[in-house]
Design a protein around this nucleic acid. Sequence first.
DNA 1: AATCTGCAGATTGTCAACAATCCTGCAGCA
DNA 2: TGCTGCAGGATTGTTGACAATCTGCAGATT
Lengths: 228, 228
Amino acid sequence: MSSPQPFTRVNRESTAGLITRQLREAIMYGRLAPGAQLSEAALAAQFGVSRGPLREATQRLVQEGLVHAEPNRGLFVKELNDHEIKDLYAARIAIETAAGRSIIREQRQEAVTALRAAYEAMQTAAEKGDLEELSDADLHFHEVLVASAGSPRLHRMHQTLMVETRMCLTALQGTYRDPEDQVAEHRRIAEAIASADAEGMVEAVESHMQEALDRLSHSQGAAPKAKV
Amino acid sequence: MSSPQPFTRVNRESTAGLITRQLREAIMYGRLAPGAQLSEAALAAQFGVSRGPLREATQRLVQEGLVHAEPNRGLFVKELNDHEIKDLYAARIAIETAAGRSIIREQRQEAVTALRAAYEAMQTAAEKGDLEELSDADLHFHEVLVASAGSPRLHRMHQTLMVETRMCLTALQGTYRDPEDQVAEHRRIAEAIASADAEGMVEAVESHMQEALDRLSHSQGAAPKAKV
DNA sequence: AATCTGCAGATTGTCAACAATCCTGCAGCA
DNA sequence: TGCTGCAGGATTGTTGACAATCTGCAGATT
């Protein structure tokens, strides 16, 4: 009975917020495919709510850019064409290098620790031969990079970019690459940050993104209409 | 009768979209003050619609981060504290320098032309002694900078940052500075880009932002609770 | 006087119904 | 055969009503 405030403020998420999160995840992982139309009536029934809250949720996704609304014709999951993917990776470079610079400038040692842990998790997955876990750990590394910069805005902007990145990876499954190379690239980014080498960090991020982009382009070229 | 397609596709904006735009503008220019509660019934009546479309519009603003929703208690216009303003300017540096680098890398000559026109418009406003026009032209310069990079993602992210910037400037009216210095800083950015000097461009953007940030901080220090 | 409780009013959250719009298929005409 | 117009069905857009929640105030209790 001596603790001043044993409970914390309760904060229940709104219905629209709950729905938004689930829809975003479904989009990320391809359960709602690029180009697919979202039926309000069907989705509302699935969520067990009326169409009102469903519309509220989809408006959030519209603003986020993951869904586009065509008045009177419906809502469609965003599709990412070549130009979009290129722009996506360019935007990721901008955000991730800014985060890296911020970490270096502010000498955030705990960020280096977290980044090392992140690429070690990738190493573990690579040794297990678990490509899905490796892919998740790869994305997680990038999330750690930006989250570690401590900038709410960079973090927020990056989250949408990562949703889009996952959409690409989901749609273009099977883009194989050498796991050890994958791990090495991330180690290179983390160690450049650890040694306060901003130029090296930028170069490492850029070449990593370019490599990913090349792979995505080749994958699209090799499998015509490989999108779902 | 020889033109293959003389008309373009008609695209009417949705009710929610229309309302969102107007609310965003009211937030930008302080008509809806930071911290203010948005009353659904009152706003819907003003717009001449039911609460449904109004709620859709405000959900977009919630996702954009300009409004935060507290379930069962209402919607509130975002407030920007010191940390937020600092983060805002850091994010602007990230986006604007990325845009500048992209322009330089792709040797976009029309961007240089547009940037020069933008700072010349600032010069004109400075000579007229019209501080409001100068402020608008200043913000416009930054918009031109990012728009000229031709990256939809950078553009989109920057738009929200500029809304927030305008919010700051509106709330902290009267932050005086020397117009000629203001113009000179923008000329410096544009000319660094024109001469493909990426480092000079970054330095110019960074010092310009730091200067703006210092001014905002001093303004807040000098006028306690200067926030309307 | 200070604190607690209950209630009324205001506001937000959701629902179902109706209106508006679009798309598709079919019938009729040139 | 190809084009046009129309009807029907499906879906989206909006509204008003009711439910749920929160806040502030008045009255009762300590």
